[in-house]
Amino acid sequence: MADKKQKEVVKQVLQKHQHDKALLVDVLQDIQAEIGYLPKEVLVETSKGLGVPVSRVYSVATFFKAFSLTPRGRNLINVCMGTACHVRGSVKVLEQIEKELKIKAGETTPDLKYTLETVNCVGSCALGPMVIVGEDYHGEMTPEKVVSVLANYK
């Protein structure tokens, strides 16, 4: 069962969107923003609240890249893999982070400190390779520089 706090989040988000089934993607986004990820119980609760089958909620939650069904780290690292960053060496930056944190893209460190993800272009192509940590944009990253950038996030 979803705990009380999570249930309350679902209730409020659904109210905000007037229980509109069409807004499932928006609903899930708002819930994730509050809870940090989409636990199973929350998806079941959302399904009941909207009158949409759980299978549909699960399909949508796993189709879109924005959603995570597992807990995410305190610091979300997004490495831009857009074309401009790619031609400027983003793969090496990503590999360095993977080595440093001992996780692969899409994973979270066991201490829940970092979640590593990739994004296809944030449109800061002049500064590629870009690494975004939380809301901070770090441009012109190199495998060497990125290690010291990450050290600033606890």
């Binding site: 993607v25 986004q29 189709f63 924005a66």
Partner: peptide, 25 residues
């Protein structure tokens, strides 16, 4: 306004509309 969910395919008009209807794109 509806925010996308992170899917390139939703730039395709029918996929975008499916997503607007609360379905997978």
């Amino acid at each position: 306004i509806q925010r996308g969910g992170g899917a390139f395919i939703c730039g395709e008009s029918t996929a975008l509309m499916a997503s607007l209807e609360g379905k997978v794109g």
